[in-house]
């Protein structure tokens, strides 16, 4: 007996404006995002391969990759540790003035990066309020860069971990405790695994932001070639010398890294969402 294939009835969408809204969106992102970004790759092809490799593996440029990567990583780790503690305290412990403290966490998103940059430099300069208490230099060294990047990335980890902690099922903790686990065991074996995806997302967001950050870093870095010169600054310097090809080549490297990071962030969220759907 032949069974007629069940025709999937397409639900007619009566909502208007599909052509207009999608068309407008496509036009807008094409002109303002895709076309400009494609220029980086198009301009890179005007260089030949050996020139390109030479530019992006120049000693000074490689030193900047190491610096940018290392300081972004250090700032990301600091933010993971302190961001998780801050999120934990904000969700779990009552203390006076909590609403204000909670609102303040977003300050790095609201404060212009240049303003943050000059404020941190003034604080951590050798004669500054904080800098004077240390025997070693903080501003104008990689340490200063780490401080600026930690400031910039602080809200990411807090704001990704906070909602997960808020929605955390307290019964699981009670079960763990009633089965004889102490508080530390419960934290490590029950709570932390649930927080890991959020912490990773927060870390990647902070790390991606830190790699490209310019405004807050230029003031505190000191910008010494080979020592405290971040990759975005090298692009800036090359532009000021009208070396567009060189600037574009390094921008290509940074763009590829950014795309990779974006991909990783989306993967983490995709895997996490799947896990939630299946459980």
């Amino acid at each position: 007996m032949n069974i007629l294939p069940v025709r999937k009835r397409k639900r007619r969408n009566i909502i208007p404006g599909f052509g207009l809204s999608l068309g407008y969106t496509m036009l807008y992102v094409s002109i303002l995002v895709l076309l400009p970004l494609s220029m980086v790759f198009i301009n890179t092809t005007t260089m030949n391969w050996s020139e390109f490799i030479e530019t992006i593996t120049d000693e000074r440029v490689v030193a900047s990759y190491k610096l940018s990567f290392g300081t972004a990583l250090a700032a990301g780790i600091l933010n993971v540790i302190f961001g998780t503690i801050i999120a934990w305290v904000l969700v779990r412990y009552p203390f006076p003035g909590k609403r204000i403290v909670d609102g303040l966490v977003d300050l790095p998103f609201a404060l212009p990066t240049a303003v943050a940059g000059i404020a941190l430099t003034t604080l951590y300069a050798p004669q500054g309020w904080v800098g004077q208490f240390f025997d070693f230099k903080i501003a104008f060294t990689p340490l200063g860069i780490i401080i600026a990047l930690t400031f910039i990335g602080l809200p990411f980890v807090v704001r990704t971990v906070q909602p997960v902690l808020q929605n955390f099922n307290g019964e699981v903790e009670e079960a763990s405790a009633s089965l004889g686990a102490n508080r530390l065991q419960t934290f490590i074996k029950v709570i932390l695994p649930e927080l890991i995806p959020a912490i990773l997302t927060g870390f990647s967001l902070a790390f991606a932001r830190a790699l490209g950050e310019y405004g807050s870093v230029v003031f505190i870095a000191g910008n010494m070639p080979m020592k405290t010169e971040i990759t975005p600054l090298i692009i800036m310097t090359k532009l000021e010398q009208y070396d567009y090809a060189g600037a574009t080549a390094i921008a290509t490297v940074m763009l590829v890294v950014s795309f990779l990071l974006l991909f990783i962030i989306n993967m983490i969220q995709w895997v996490t969402n799947r896990k939630f759907l299946h459980s």
């Binding site: 995002v33 991606a208 490209g212 310019y214 975005p232 950014s258 974006l262």
Partner: peptide
């Protein structure tokens, strides 16, 4: 745009 350095 969020993932790209402002300098770029």
């Amino acid at each position: 745009p969020f993932a790209i350095s402002p300098v770029i």
